[in-house]
Nucleic acid binder design. Structure first.
Length: 932
RNA sequence: GGGCCAUUAGCUCAGUUGGUUAGAGCGCAUGCUUGAUAAGCAUGAGGUCCCUGGUUCGAACCCAGGAUGGCCCA
């Protein structure tokens, strides 16, 4: 065998690692979850940060509702929370994260009733509540597993907070007591959104708008003989005996029995029109459309008047024996209808306000199940939605119907049973937003909060500004009781703070395993909680009955700052709340209001809001439209780390698009990053703690690389601290490609592969690569938690040292930037790119000559052979100090012949035993042979 | 209908106080490499900066109106 044919490959130090190129994430991730749990990675790091005096960083978890499986929106939210906790944990902070669940409320109650095939009116409340509890716990357990599976396991997942826990319920009751004591809580009649199917009042947040077809009717409200002259006079007309009426428009004929007024716009002009032998009053802007519907020939305008002139006149109710007052209201629009708005204060929010303003009776002829009471006259006993047709027929028969058609519009529906809801006047408990300056206190509190994105402040302020009176009572079973009592003598409702606190105390005495602590309100008599001498403030009575209201679940989650942070002795306020943008109106606001009322400040220092997950075309995802992506399926296909990277690759403050081709794209980026980790691990083969070269003794190029690393790592860490995940992602991928893959790793190959294994120059390179590897691992960990940990575990345990997990590493601190070194590094990259771009011939087939200006000339000369190495050429023929112009590198075909071992073109044959090798390689091979 | 937000390359995103030829990564095409190899390198193509109008010597950027999409409301 001739020497020239000899294969020197085995004498090289080629990369070697067990870290697989193929990730197989779906298969491998579950074991990693178990590993983190088993090794108590989070708990141990948290404790260590605490012991070392790390400042707290508290992300307070907005509780997901314990019903249904995780969807991609939840994934986005949980990932962001997990990344935020991990960032601060790695940064040495005491990032104590307590996950929580929202577990009371109608959806669970309904699901349980359905499951048990029960009607809630017939169900025993204690039994129902027990079943609801089981259901809620089932969903919580399931959601918790899904969170752990996606790698979002860093938190107190074995001791989460639950709104059904005794101490949580106690805090709810105690907060109600505080609010009552401060006179924020009151009972009042309100036209509230009401579901006649669930027989309960609904919060705004429990409403969904959906398309609905309503009847659309135009109705005459006739003026009688006594009313006609006053009306006609305003239009400058005499009474010639022609029938006169005001035309109103409504899409809810069933509310007509409760009509007491007609609202006009104060600024619009109204006309009296003569058409087919009658006079009709209508807004001029809408007259054309109305008479077109009537199709009764030409309408002649006889007189006109501004709406403001008609105030407090009256017409007759179309079928009940009473008047309907003409009133003015700003909300009257001139887009649809007649400009004369049928007003029933018992059946509408604005109607109610007008009713109060004009001192109108609040009629409420509808019971909780949607049936007319005797007050509705001929319609008593009918179901309201069925009465619509009957009322229209009667109006037509009486000659009072001008026109009737159907009308498609967006209409409020119950979020749970999906049926249309109505407005109905009921006695409810309210938190008075305008009592004792609560709204102003909340508004002030907003100004002390930092918002990401910044425009969140505008949004939040508006939410406070527009916050209506907060109805907090519900007539259901699955919730925390509002511990109010009714005086049996005078029927007065009373929420006595002392009584409430007694109840709370009794609930606290229960353990979680004993079941629903608040069952006490159902099972125990009033006397069990009533303080001695409790008397009715109105009549002095001393006998009371319990009210059976539960509290709105938005109030429950709204006191989480107190039930979790305060109750567990954690810092208050929290550093951050992090939820979807819908929560400006939901949880951000409910927490703000309760905290402003009790503590006079916001419960959070900062709010981070994320956008919605939409499909790849930017449209909302729905199971029904077929663009829905199930989380478990996505994890099974791509793995959690790819999905985590997908979020980081997006700008989460806006809407986040998701689709298969998008995830394929992210998968490619993932593979890139993974391969870099793999290559680094391979290159570290053979490095031991003792052979690590201190930075100041490293080769000059390695020191430059680490200067670049420092700058990069500091930048990414700062992005992380400010939670600019996307910026961190961009910086990471760029450094990975531009600095490592295309430049430094390429330039190091010769030194790593062809040096003697333990040559100082090789150890220097490995030491730098170790630093880079460790830094990349910690910077990737918040996002690619699984992969970063996997890579870290593939590292030689001796190098891993005390850091058992990648989460035992430290987030880099920002070090002073050495601008000169960075500039030198950048220039080297640029010159290397020039060499790499030279056509046809490549790398070691070339020798190079460099022209640079001061100060680079000196810096380059100081690099010694590293300069040649950085350009990946066989020889550097010279470095010239150019007088001007851009730095350049000129390449020419290399002199010498290709060394069969290191592939550089050098003089060969110095060693007769290795004629195809250059002198250095020959010497190394001889040494290796001597060892064997 | 109102409030808030978004719209830049096939995809995800940059684009500093208005100022040369609007950038990066991924993808795509072509070539190289076969000692990171189900990898790596190089080169290249690809843009009506959503539209219309305005301000300006000059607009992706400022102003007005509109379109599309999203969230929240009505």
């Amino acid at each position: 065998m001739s020497e020239s044919a000899r294969d020197y490959r085995s004498t090289l130090n080629l990369p070697k690692t067990d870290f697989p190129m193929r990730a197989e994430l779906p298969k491998r991730e579950p074991a990693r979850v178990a590993w983190w749990t088993e090794h108590q990675t989070y708990r141990k790091r948290l404790a260590r940060n605490g012991e070392q005096g790390g400042a707290p960083y508290i992300l307070h978890d907005g509780p997901p509702y314990a019903n249904g499986d995780m969807h991609m929106g939840t994934f986005l939210n949980r990932f962001l929370k997990d990344a935020l906790v991990k960032i601060h944990l790695l940064d040495g902070r005491y990032a104590d994260f307590v996950p929580g669940w929202d577990m009371h409320g109608l959806p669970i109650e309904r699901e349980t009733l359905k499951h048990l095939k029960l009607d809630f009116r017939a169900a025993d409340p204690i039994e129902l509540r027990r079943a609801c509890r089981e259901r809620a716990l089932y969903w919580m357990g399931r959601q918790r597993e899904q969170m752990l599976r996606m790698g979002a396991s860093f938190g107190r997942f074995d001791e989460p907070y639950m709104t059904i826990a005794p101490e949580y319920e106690a805090v709810i009751v105690e907060t109600l007591a505080d609010l009552a004591e401060r006179d924020y809580l009151y009972k009042g009649l309100r036209s509230t959104l009401w579901c006649v199917y669930d027989e309960t009042a609904l919060a705004e947040a429990e409403i969904e708008y959906k398309d609905h077809t309503s009847p659309s009717v135009y109705v005459r409200f006739p003026a009688n003989a006594a009313q006609r002259p006053a009306l006609l006079e305003k239009f400058g007309l005499d009474d010639d005996g022609t029938p006169l009426s005001v035309a109103i428009w409504t899409t809810t004929p069933w509310t007509l029995p409760a009509n007491v007024a007609i609202a006009l716009s104060p600024t619009a002009t109204y006309g009296v029109y003569r058409v087919a032998g009658e006079d009709i009053i209508v807004a001029e802007a809408l007259a054309g459309a109305l008479f077109e519907r009537m199709a009764a020939g030409e309408a002649i305008l006889r007189g006109e008047a501004p709406g403001s002139d008609l105030e407090r006149l009256a017409v007759r109710h179309p079928f009940l024996d009473r008047d309907s007052l003409v009133i003015l209201a700003d909300y009257v629009e001139l887009e649809t209808g007649t400009g004369a708005v049928h007003t029933a204060p018992g059946h509408g929010e604005v109607d109610f306000e007008s009713g109060v303003q004009y001192g109108l009776p609040i009629l409420n002829p509808v019971d909780g199940a949607g049936r007319f009471t005797a007050e509705a006259g001929p319609y008593a006993g009918m179901f309201i939605f069925e009465a619509n047709a009957r009322i229209v027929d009667d109006l037509r028969a009486a000659g009072l119907l001008i026109a009737s058609e159907s009308y498609d519009h967006s209409y409020p529906h119950c979020w749970r049973c999906k049926n249309p809801v109505v407005y109905r006047a009921t006695a409810q408990w309210f938190i008075g937003m305008d009592r004792h300056g609560l709204r102003e206190r909340a508004e002030r509190a907003v100004h002390d909060v930092e918002f990401l994105p910044a425009w969140g402040e505008t949004r939040m302020s508006q939410m406070v500004e527009n916050h209506p009176e907060w109805c907090v009572s519900r007539q259901r079973a699955w919730g925390t009781p509002i511990p109010a009592v009714v005086c049996t003598a005078c029927n007065e409702s009373l929420l006595d703070p002392a009584l409430a606190r007694n109840l709370a105390q009794a609930m606290r005495a229960r353990s979680f395993d004993e079941g629903n602590a608040s069952d006490l309100w159902w099972t125990e008599p009033v006397s069990a909680f009533a303080p001695p001498g409790l008397t009715c403030p109105r009549c002095g009575g001393t006998a009371f009955e319990k009210e059976r209201n539960i509290v709105d679940i938005w109030f429950e989650s709204g006191v989480s700052w107190r039930a979790v942070l305060v109750e567990r002795g954690m810092p208050f306020p929290a550093d951050a709340y992090l939820e979807g943008g819908d929560q400006y109106r939901g949880w951000f606001r409910s927490n703000l209001v309760t905290s402003a009322a009790v503590r006079d400040r916001a419960p959070y220092k900062s709010i981070i809001a994320h956008g919605w997950v939409v499909d790849q075309h930017g449209h909302a995802m729905h199971k029904s439209t077929g663009n829905y992506m199930a989380t478990d399926e996505a994890i099974a296909k791509y793995g959690a780390d790819v999905l985590r990277l997908w979020v980081a690759s997006s700008e989460f403050t806006g809407d986040v698009r998701l689709g298969a081709n998008l995830l394929d794209n992210v998968s490619n980026v993932y593979r890139n990053l993974r391969n870099r980790l793999r290559y680094l691990l391979g290159a570290l083969d053979g490095l031991t703690p003792l052979s690590i070269v201190p930075r100041e003794e490293m080769e000059p190029l390695d020191r430059l690389a680490l200067a670049a690393l420092d700058a990069f790592a500091g930048e990414v860490a700062e992005h992380y601290r400010a939670f600019r995940l996307h910026d961190a992602y961009v910086a990471l991928t760029r450094f990975d490609i531009e600095d490592l893959s295309r430049f430094y790793l390429d330039a190091l190959k010769d030194r790593l592969y062809s040096s003697a294994p333990d040559a100082p120059r090789r150890r220097s390179a490995q030491s730098a690569l170790f630093e880079i590897f460790r830094t990349l691992c910690v910077l990737l960990a918040p996002v690619l938690s699984f992969t970063a940990e996997e890579a870290w575990q593939c590292l030689d345990p001796a190098l891993r040292g005390a850091a058992e997990s990648v989460f035992d590493l430290e987030l880099p601190t920002v070090s002073p930037i050495d601008e000169a070194q960075l500039a030198t590094w950048s220039l080297l990259k640029e010159l290397r790119a020039q060499v790499a771009a030279s056509e046809g011939i490549r790398d070691f087939q070339l020798d190079a000559t460099i022209d640079v200006q001061e100060p680079y000339y000196d810096r380059f000369v100081a690099l010694g052979d590293n300069l040649r190495e950085a350009l990946v050429v066989s020889a550097l023929r010279g470095v010239h100090a150019a007088s001007n112009g851009a730095p350049t590198v000129v390449v020419v075909p290399a002199e010498g012949e290709k060394c069969q071992r290191c592939w550089k073109y050098l003089p060969l044959g110095v060693d007769p035993h290795h004629p195809t090798l250059d002198a250095t390689c020959a010497a190394i091979v001889r040494e290796l042979e001597a060892k064997t």
